[in-house]
Amino acid sequence: MTFADTSVLADFWAHDPFILANGPDRTYYLYTSSPDAPVVTVYRSADLRKWVGPTTVFTIPEGTWANPAESPWAPEVHEFEGRFYLFTTLHDSTRALPVASDGTSELSARHRDGQVYAPVTRGTVIGVASSPLGPFELLDHVGPVAPREFMTLDGTLYVDGSGQPWMVYAHEWVQLFDGTIEAIRLDAGLVRSVGSPIHLFRGSEAKHLRERTPSALSPVPYVTDGPQLRRLAGGGLLMLWATYRRTGATAEYVETMAISRGGSIEGPWEQLDVLVDGNAGHGMLFTTFDGALMLVLHRGMGTPHVRAQLFEVVEDESAGLRVIEDRSDLYA
């Protein structure tokens, strides 16, 4: 790989960025969707400063359940048993899901922008390739991994201590009002789910919401986005996830955390402090080739100028993670 024509993180749009540090070629692969086409792309770097790309690694195939004209969200690539697996969220906004009901009347979800949202078909799929550069081929064309009547997004891979693979994902606030984080077992080939989902926690359980007294003005809806899990050295299971923190009429996207101190995916889950604020979130962890633990997330949620940013973090068995350095030196 040559770096004759390179970019820095400040140069290119990156929403829901995910970085795979691939040891054999000592290359960092940054996966994101594209603002210009319904594809998943990757940028490559040897030093986290200069990036080559974008290269398309996944295009939605014709004949699947998803609309090939709608852009994938939240691509992640995980190495599992010698192959590379892409997790990304697809959509078909023309296919409605049942609207929430209290048994007698339908209920509509209204976002902070005043717009009314209705549930539509959305869910994470899994593709496989022999290389981080793809091309990734869908393992199942029939439907998403989570139950198809669920409106879900941001699926991520977690493998427990017994070797059982899981997909952990967010269940949309649009369908539930109070979004959730859930998990479902995968078969050995990561082709499809096994059994029923389990509930982990709700968006309204975020620690920063304890500061607000529940009332008719409580900040509904409660958004859950971008889960990722990491086993801590002391045995606890940490989860990064993103949501909105509201102050009066304003809201900002934030990266927060939860921990299962006993180490079980089933919890109980204790909510921790916000890790990064300032309209930034959907964070993912990776370890550099020099052994530093890094957080990549996007800043500028809801604006045209969405960019990936990097932070060096350390484990803290009590607090989960702590930011020790803002690596803005790698940004521009």
Rank of each mutant, 00 (worst) to 15 (best):
N67G: 03
F201Y: 14
V142A: 14
V42E: 00
L209Q: 03
E76D: 14
V40P: 00
Y43P: 00
D316G: 08
R110M: 13
Q271R: 15
M257Y: 01
T55I: 10
V120A: 11
P75D: 06
M294R: 11
A183I: 06
D16W: 05
F136D: 01
L272T: 06
D16S: 12
K50C: 11
G320C: 11
G114E: 10
R148V: 12
Q228L: 03
L237F: 08
L97K: 10
D225S: 05
S33V: 00
L9K: 04
N67D: 15
F286Y: 15
S108G: 03
P68H: 07
L138R: 13
D16P: 00
R322E: 13
V313E: 01
S328R: 13
L272I: 11
H91N: 13
R261I: 04
S93T: 14
T27Y: 05
D225F: 13
F84H: 05
L138V: 10
D316A: 07
M239G: 04
E205I: 01
Y117S: 11
A280N: 03
A96V: 04
G195E: 10
P135M: 08
E255S: 02
T152D: 11
F201M: 11
L9P: 04
A233L: 07
G283R: 03
T27S: 09
L153R: 03
S260A: 15
A280L: 07
A129M: 11
Y169L: 09
A96G: 09
E312V: 04
D36T: 14
V194C: 07
D5M: 02
L240M: 13
T256F: 08
T247H: 13
V39T: 14
A242G: 13
D92Q: 10
V57H: 01
L310E: 00
S45N: 09
L240Q: 02
E137L: 11
S196F: 01
L217T: 13
D36F: 10
L275T: 01
A242T: 14
E62T: 13
S108W: 07
I19S: 07
N279H: 12
A206Y: 07
R212S: 05
V168H: 10
L240N: 04
P61Q: 09
V220R: 08
G179W: 00
Y244T: 05
K207L: 15
H15N: 14
H141C: 02
D154F: 00
G278M: 08
T6A: 06
P165E: 05
A4D: 14
G134N: 06
E252H: 06
E106H: 12
T124N: 09
P304G: 09
A332G: 14
F80S: 03
E70R: 06
F177E: 07
G163E: 09
Y331M: 08
R83E: 12
P268N: 09
P227T: 04
A100C: 02
L310D: 00
N279T: 12
S131V: 07
R112D: 11
V42L: 10
V276Q: 03
Q228E: 15
P268L: 00
I265Y: 06
L275S: 02
T152M: 02
R95M: 12
Y29M: 10
A332P: 00
V142L: 11
L138K: 09
L107A: 08
P119K: 01
